[in-house]
């Protein structure tokens, strides 16, 4: 009983902190900001979960993750435009068709970037497994190459990300303004979280991956070709980054080649806060970052980024292994 209480106590404090902006913001605005904070959190989760899992399982600090995110956004952009030219579903008034084209674009970008991830892992990262130093360099090199490839293929300038018509605007629920797209992003993010969580918890592959996060050598000794799992996790992480990229681009309505570099820092912070290798940690960390960022951005716009760093510093000093070091 006592133990349970201790476990929930930090959670209560977190809740208290997140309700505290109510003192300075009127409740309706509070709800609006909370929704956009949750949306930002869920999008961050998509990027950082892959990053965190790759670090936990492969022990690779994948600095190219941001570039994969940007690739996801660009492929999503192109496939959305191509499908839209062909079918016109993006401009259709049916929200169902809107969803179909949106999801199609995300799936295409997820698959293609997973492929890109497999190529990267096999050709560039695999030869340097075991050496942290060279891994970091190699992923930096991969990041440069991938980002430059975006500039070569799509050009160096910003592009406007198309948004399905019915995703724009907002609903009015009892006088509270609820933007549509953030709500959609929250739902999709949460579904993806549940899917990943169930895969890791309930399937044999997931169990092996969790085992590998703790002790990759023993996974090999037990007869599993760990390199195949490495590739698989890397591909899955890349696909998540890509879906995150596509959804993020739709959120901010624009894409540019360097967009990955900005997000990777957030992903890094979220992964550290949540505990490297932990999916639930990623979700909680991402929501913490997303919410605190949005609250502070509303109250004191210039301190928004500072609060994220502060969060990192506080968590690292009181719990160096992150909030959820226990995995999943």
């Amino acid at each position: 009983m006592n133990l349970k209480w201790k476990r929930w106590f930090p959670m209560l404090i977190v809740f208290a902190i997140f309700l505290s902006p109510l003192l300075g913001i009127n409740p309706k605005t509070y709800i609006t900001i909370t929704i956009s904070g949750l949306a930002m959190g869920m999008l961050l989760f998509l990027v950082s979960s892959g990053f965190s899992l790759i670090f936990g399982f492969l022990s690779v600090l994948n600095l190219a993750h941001g570039a994969l995110f940007a690739w996801g956004a660009y492929i999503g952009f192109t496939s959305f435009n191509l499908i839209n030219q062909w079918t016109g579903w993006g401009g259709s008034n049916s929200i169902f068709l809107n969803f179909i084209i949106f999801l199609l674009a995300l799936i295409i970008s997820g698959l293609l970037v997973a492929l890109l991830g497999i190529i990267t892992e096999r050709s560039v990262i695999r030869p340097v497994y075991g050496s942290h130093l060279f891994q970091i360099f190699i992923t930096v090199g991969a990041m440069i190459v991938m980002e430059e490839l975006i500039r070569i293929i799509w050009g160096p300038n910003d592009e406007v990300m198309p948004v399905p018509i019915k995703f724009m605007g907002s609903w009015d629920v009892f006088d509270v303004v609820v933007s549509k797209y953030p709500l959609i992003a929250i739902v999709i993010g949460f579904i993806l979280y549940l899917v990943i969580f169930m895969i890791l918890r309930k399937t044999k592959i997931g169990t092996i991956v969790r085992a590998g996060v703790e002790n990759p050598e023993m996974v090999q000794v037990m007869g599993h070709n760990i390199y195949r799992y490495f590739t698989g996790v890397f591909a899955a992480g890349s696909a998540l980054a890509a879906i995150g990229g596509g959804m993020w681009a739709t959120f901010v309505k624009s894409i540019h080649p360097a967009m990955g570099g900005e997000v990777i820092v957030f992903a890094l912070i979220v992964a550290i806060i949540g505990g490297l290798g932990s999916i639930t940690g990623s979700v909680v960390g991402a929501l913490l970052v997303g919410l605190s960022y949005n609250y502070v951005a509303y109250l004191i716009p210039k301190a928004a980024l500072g609060i994220t760093m502060l969060l990192l510093v506080i968590i690292l000093s009181i719990r160096p292994t992150g909030l959820f070091p226990e995995g999943t």
Binding site: T207, I208, E217
Partner: peptide
């Protein structure tokens, strides 16, 4: 992993237990 599949089991010095997994999951792996 190939050697293991030929039928050699290994219990390392540090035991190699997956502490975060349940006993059942340890066997499942």
């Amino acid at each position: 992993y190939e050697i293991s599949r030929l039928g050699i089991g290994f219990v390392p010095e540090d035991r190699g237990i997956y502490n975060l997994l349940t006993v059942e999951e340890n066997f499942r792996v």
